[in-house]
Structures are given as C-alpha cells and as structure tokens.
Design a protein around this nucleic acid. Sequence first.
DNA 1: TAGATTGTTAATCGATTAACAATC
DNA 2: TAGATTGTTAATCGATTAACAATC
Lengths: 217, 217
Amino acid sequence: MQERVLSIQGIKRLPYYLKFLKELKVNGVAYVPASAIADSLNIYEVQVRKDLAAISRQPGKPRVGFTVNALIEDIEHFLGYDNPNSAVLVGAGHLGQALMNYSELENHGLNIAAVFDVSPDLIGKSIRGVQVYALEELVNICRERNIEVGIITTPVGCAQEVCDKLVEGGVKAIWNFAHIYLHVPSRILVQNEDMAVSYALLSNHLANPMQEILTEE
Amino acid sequence: MQERVLSIQGIKRLPYYLKFLKELKVNGVAYVPASAIADSLNIYEVQVRKDLAAISRQPGKPRVGFTVNALIEDIEHFLGYDNPNSAVLVGAGHLGQALMNYSELENHGLNIAAVFDVSPDLIGKSIRGVQVYALEELVNICRERNIEVGIITTPVGCAQEVCDKLVEGGVKAIWNFAHIYLHVPSRILVQNEDMAVSYALLSNHLANPMQEILTEE
DNA sequence: TAGATTGTTAATCGATTAACAATC
DNA sequence: TAGATTGTTAATCGATTAACAATC
C-alpha cells in the first residue's frame, strides 16, 4: 500500500482543487474524474490522483471518479479548515486591511481576534468589527486570549521586533508578509508570503526569456 | 566546468541574499564568505556557493570570500532589476494600494504607468501620482504605452476577464494576486502570489503538527 | 606552510512522470 | 465483454547535501 503522504507542492495544489470542486458543487455535479481536475489546472492527471490518494478518505470509483462533496470535505479536513485558530494581525496598513477584508480566511477557520498598530488615529477604533490596540499590549493579549497565529503586515523595519513579541506571547505560527528572514525558535512555524520573492521570479523571467520557467509558483 | 544554471528555488533565495548584502554594504563591509550568508538564513553554505557560482561574474577568492558590491550588482543584474519594465495595475483596493506604496518595486525596475478600477470615485483621480482609468480603457492604454506587465489585484470574480484584456493589450507577463488559475496563451508568464495557498500551508501545519514542514515557502 | 575558503563531482533526497495492473 | 477510470510500482527529473580537490 502506498504511503499516505503529500508533498509540499501537493499541499499547494489543494486550494486550487478545492476551488474547482466548489464550482462543480454549485453547478450540481456529483462525481468528478481526476482527469477533469487536471485539465482545469493544466497538470497531469496522475499527479492529481497521487495527491487525492494521499488525502481522500474514500477511494475513487473506476468508471465514475470521486464524489465531489466527499472530496471537498477531505481537502478541507486535510488543510485543517475545520480546525479553528485564533490570530492577531500586526500592522493595519493597506496590506493588513486587505487581509481583514479577505473573508475566505474566516471561512477557513482563522479568526482574527485583535489588531495592533502604532498609529494613534487607529488605536481604540475598530476595523471590520475587530478592536485595534497599541503595540505595547501585544504580548499580554496574545497570552490572555491564547492566540495561536501572529500575522505580520508591518514595515520590514519592525518585523523582527514584532515577531519576538509574538513568540513571547506564545503563538505557534507566524504568517509573515514582510521581506525579512525572521529568526525564531525551531518549534515555531514561519510561513512567508513575500512579494519581493514573487517579483524576483517575474523580473528574472522577463530579463532572461530564453530560460524556461514554469508558470507555477 | 559547471553549468551556470540556477534552480527556481535558488532564484527565490536571491532576494534574501541581496537584502543581507545591502545591510553589509551599509555597515561598510567589503568582503563576505558564503558561510556568513548561509548563517544569516539558516541554510547550508554549499547551497549559497552553488547559487552564487551560477550568477556571479567574478569568482570568489579563497580566504577572502566574495566582494559585497560586485555580488549586489550581479544579483540585481541576474534578477533583471537593471532592466526596466512598464506595468499597469488593475484593482485599486487595499491590496492594490499596498503594492503602489511598495517602493522596492520601482527601485527594481517596475514602473506602474497606469491604474484601473471600476469605482467612479477613483476614476480620474490619481494614486501616488499615477492616474486611475476606467476598465474600458485597459486594452488601448496597454497597447499605446507598450505595457509589459499586468498586475491583477481585483476580486477573484473578474480576474480571468481582466487577464484576457491584458493579454489582448499585449502584456508579456501577469502578476496575479487573485486565487484563481488563469488561462493564458503559453507565451505569457503568469506569476501567482496567492494568499490562499500560503494560508493552506500554515493551516495544514497547525492541524497536523507531527508532519515536518520546513519554514521555507 | 597551514588553514580558510573556494568550486566541482558524486550521492542522496524529493517530486513528477511513465508504465501498467486492478476494478467496476 | 470492453473501456473508462482507478491506484501502484518503477523510472526520470530536479534540487540539495556530502565529499573532496584546488587555491590564495
């Protein structure tokens, strides 16, 4: 029997599978073969089958395919979307506010419990129903409310300092949008979302068009 | 002789090397060994050496290391930061405005020539000195000004439609921030920057802490 | 000279792709 | 039954890591 292990690249594909499956569901489609998922994303169907074999709790049926509803549930479960996490967001600039408006996060189990900023204009107000606090309160509020995830959308200059406070406050993971390599204890996961890295790939491709760089991230 | 080719993962590391090297330069450091770069990012020094071997135009010197200034120039050249590209940005919400404020992009050769939106409140105004136009003008302005890069920061619902217009307008690459797999002719590069993908990795890790997922993107 | 650091070649690891057997 | 689709095992490809020779 195959080991039920999914590659990191495979995990990255799951949100796209999920999006496609939800569209099928809305259109009332009950079953889907791996080939249809593969076609929608321009990848090989074997890859889809391997990914699904690692995460689906019921096997696909020959001549029929996979049950759309079951697959949606399995992917959501594997990605932990049924496992609520409490978070704080630090840095209420445009990027921070873009995240606050991204309702998918809430649907996927991420509850932003508090926002932090340095601007006196924002402190004490609320954004999308979430209170904005001064940075000084970060450690205490994280501890009191048992916060698991810290989101850093500050300027790069204070990102490490904010990160240290989040760690002190006891978070398990940091979602970092600043272009900096954060130093953290090894038990903490840092997930980087770095526009500078994404731009580097784009710029490099435009400067060296002979290189074959794939469209995937 | 080694082939001077850099892996995609290697390209993703370059912006971090660059950031570290610029800090050294500010501090007046003239030479740096690969081991110092590796230490700053918690990676193996052999990996740094391989990456640098692929992009540096002068070799490193035994007992001394690499020249900081030369390395900065070589990385910037390899990433195409000395190769200016003209761009348009579609979708002037929080995420779009965050990008407009990200001055690194301009320093790295990306000039945003025009912004597009559907909101009558924004059309005709300017953001950070860049004029906001109605979506109807997208194709024409791309053609007239020879735009090379289209940036999509719209809601997911209109992303494919905007993408089609950018392709019609003749862009070579699309920097896509919407959670959607864009269908484009094969000559066009799509660089995805997808928060939903990044979040999936984070959420999966929190739900299955036994899995060893690395901190790198 | 000895030692720090470089660059290269070979080995390992991880992910994708190909070939094929199993099943409804 | 034939054929569509599944899942698995083996082969290939790409990236990292280890071992080592070269140089100032």
